[in-house]
Amino acid sequence: MSSAPIGVFDSGYGGLTVLKELVAQLPDYDYLYLGDNARAPYGTRSYDTVYQFTLECVQYLFAQGCQLVILACNTASAKALRTIQQQDLPRIDAQRRVLGVIRPSVEAVGALSQHRAVGVLGTTGTVNSQSYVIEIQKLFPDIHVYQQACPMWVPLVENGQYDSRGADYFVEENIQHLLAQNADIDTVILGCTHYPLLIHKIKQFLPEGVNVVSQGQIVAPSLADYLKRHPQMEQNCSKNGKLHFLTTDDAAIFEQHAAIFFGQSVQARKVHVPSVSVFHTSQD
């Protein structure tokens, strides 16, 4: 297979916080980012809808030549990744790979939590999926997991209010609800890629000494390890240090918001992601 960029997908802008860390830690690789902004948010959509949309975007990135795609989206990782890996990749192309952000985040908490009490802050969709609970129990059955949905955090971030007094109110309220479940929580996973923009407020309202797991900082070294263990895939990833940004919505609007998440200005192109025939649903 010819070399191609690493595909990075998110329903909107949050995945740019993951891409930012990928570029910082693995700068030699090429990356192709796709934000499905026209159909965002995914967090409140059904399993089948998230699966359908995610599969369409993955296949679009495959059509651009990507051999490896990172789902830099918790909702897509929770509701679509397993079905795509197990049922769709064998019929599409068994040599390609799709990875998510939940498993690397889970792997990190084992060494961090001394009290074996871990909190998850996420969207309603991610929390309801129980994906973090399931994955943590698989790897660390002695860890108790406590979740808190934070439905206002993404709107605050996307409307540029992540440093506002209103953000203070909602961040403090949700963290109090989480800690009320168990005061011994010593590690908290930020289960949404938007949340790093709120990290200073999150740390402000968490007790001193609580570990905060931010996904970009976890996913980047995890990807480096994956590529080291899979040299054939590593050879299929082009290395020119180039970045390209695609959106399914207005490019100018994407560029305006993306600069906040990515930390620098970007140039984007609007694309149309065609619907695909789905042979399986996420309920299979």
Rank of each mutant, 00 (worst) to 15 (best):
C150Y: 07
P151V: 06
P151C: 01
P151F: 04
P151Q: 02
P151A: 03
M152C: 14
W153D: 01
W153Y: 13
V154G: 06
V154H: 09
V154A: 13
P155R: 13
P155Y: 13
P155K: 13
L156T: 04
V157G: 05
V157N: 06
E158P: 07
E158L: 12
N159M: 13
G160Q: 13
Q161P: 03
Q161I: 08
Y162H: 15
S164K: 15
G166L: 15
G166R: 12
G166V: 12
G166A: 13
A167S: 15
A167V: 08
A167C: 14
D168L: 12
D168S: 14
F170A: 12
V171D: 02
E173Q: 15
E173N: 10
E173M: 11
E173I: 05
E173P: 01
Q176T: 08
Q176C: 02
H177R: 15
H177A: 15
L178N: 03
Q181M: 08
N182P: 04
N182V: 04
N182H: 06
A183Q: 15
I185G: 05
D186R: 03
D186M: 03
D186W: 04
D186A: 07
T187Y: 05
T187E: 07
T187G: 07
T187L: 04
T187N: 07
V188A: 06
V188Y: 05
V188L: 04
I189Q: 10
I189D: 09
L190P: 07
G191K: 00
C192A: 03
H194D: 06
H194P: 05
H194R: 09
Y195D: 01
Y195G: 00
P196Y: 01
P196A: 07
L197I: 01
L197H: 00
L198A: 02
I199Q: 11
I199G: 03
I199S: 09
K201E: 07
I202T: 01
I202W: 01
K203C: 12
Q204G: 01
Q204P: 01
F205Y: 15
F205P: 03
F205K: 06
L206G: 00
P207F: 10
P207R: 04
E208Y: 06
E208K: 13
G209R: 13
V210M: 03
V210P: 01
N211T: 06
N211F: 12
N211I: 06
V212S: 07
V213M: 08
S214G: 11
G216E: 08
G216L: 10
Q217C: 09
Q217S: 14
I218K: 06
V219N: 03
V219S: 07
A220Q: 08
A220C: 10
P221I: 08
P221L: 11
S222I: 00
S222P: 00
S222R: 04
L223D: 10
A224Y: 11
A224P: 09
D225W: 01
D225Y: 01
Y226N: 00
Y226C: 00
